[in-house]
Design a protein around this nucleic acid. Sequence first.
DNA 1: TAAATTTGTTAGATGACTCTAAGTTATTAC
DNA 2: GTAATAACTTAGAGTCATCTAACAAATTTA
Lengths: 218, 218
Amino acid sequence: MHSYTEENYLKALFNLSADKGEVSANELSKQLGIKMPTVNSMMKKLSEKKLVHYESYKPLRLTEKGKREAGLIIRKHRLTEMFLVQKMGFGWEEVHEIAEQIEHLHSPNFFERMDALLGYPKIDPHGSPIPDKTGKMEWIKYEKLSSCKEGDTVRLAAVIHTTDDFLKFLNLRELSLGVKLKIKTVEKFDGSMTVSHNKKGSDTLSHIVCDRLLVEKL
Amino acid sequence: MHSYTEENYLKALFNLSADKGEVSANELSKQLGIKMPTVNSMMKKLSEKKLVHYESYKPLRLTEKGKREAGLIIRKHRLTEMFLVQKMGFGWEEVHEIAEQIEHLHSPNFFERMDALLGYPKIDPHGSPIPDKTGKMEWIKYEKLSSCKEGDTVRLAAVIHTTDDFLKFLNLRELSLGVKLKIKTVEKFDGSMTVSHNKKGSDTLSHIVCDRLLVEKL
DNA sequence: TAAATTTGTTAGATGACTCTAAGTTATTAC
DNA sequence: GTAATAACTTAGAGTCATCTAACAAATTTA
């Protein structure tokens, strides 16, 4: 098994390299809040363990094995988040910190049971896909709300770059996963949108907000 | 906060010194599977932190502060065990290992929620008392089954020295907390007992078994 | 009570993870 | 195409929790 520390490096590598498939040591260092030389030596160690492709002065890439192991940690994180929300009544803004800790538990039984009690969910409370038991993650291709046009009707499917503050902001506006939104207007000069929302009236959302909301067109 | 390691020392000290109020470094070392010199230096460290009374060549004692902190860890352990059994469907023989890990989580919210969902239980699935939020534990004085006499009718209230094997042994005989037992015979030469048990016929239990079962006389 | 045994202590080393300081390679900006 | 800046690497040190080896104190045994 890997140490708590190694698991955190793997997870960060996985998350940061999600798009390009590679990360700079510098990004990783910032993400983890750990100084470059420390990251550097850990990369050599993970490279020894065949979890990371490491070459001097080159970007970092997870090996297939590394991706699998990282996927399994993220699986535990997301199952936990789902459990906390669905079975323990936490809000989606409260679960990240707890899941950061529970994801490191070593107990196949425990996560197996969570999974079963939840009915084998495919997504977490923020709409992110839960990797399967082999660590593989199916990307669902949603659109950003920011790329939609006036008149579109969409369903809120996922939230990215989730922070407590952002999620609380969405709570206040009753913007939860699944809500149907109709785009009334899109401002040219700042990209903000006015959307109408089932029961409530309409809300104006800044471009920054719209860029973090993933939707499914209806 | 204390490290994972320190918490394990505190917990072990608490459990081992439950009766006499003190433990030898040697016992502690054996319990934790950690060599004496390591234990010795950790005791000095915990003494610095005012968690343990340490004097050369004297038995170890937890300070009041140490007892409180240990009690809080045991509280988390036992609440977790209760949650795993009551809310997640685990058997009482499966929960110890998982709780060993969860007890170290730092999230007041999480344990608060568990406690509430369970309805503020006072005992864990093995009948051990759950310390309160200040770390204080109320001992309930049950009798050992081994000290009961022929003809007594008792209710099984708690199990001590719980190991997987012992709990599985009890499962097979449908001996769960709360069952009513009537003591038919007590063998003079080996202290084994024949007890009859609600629905089932009667079972013969060795002295070793009877010594690990705590009962309430009816 | 003296010898043998057990228990406890000190000293010094190791491995995991972190850091700072200083040097090297790439990249960016005139 | 240098010079400046940013990114990366190396070297060396510190902390935490662990170990082994060697010694000292306490306890048990004969």
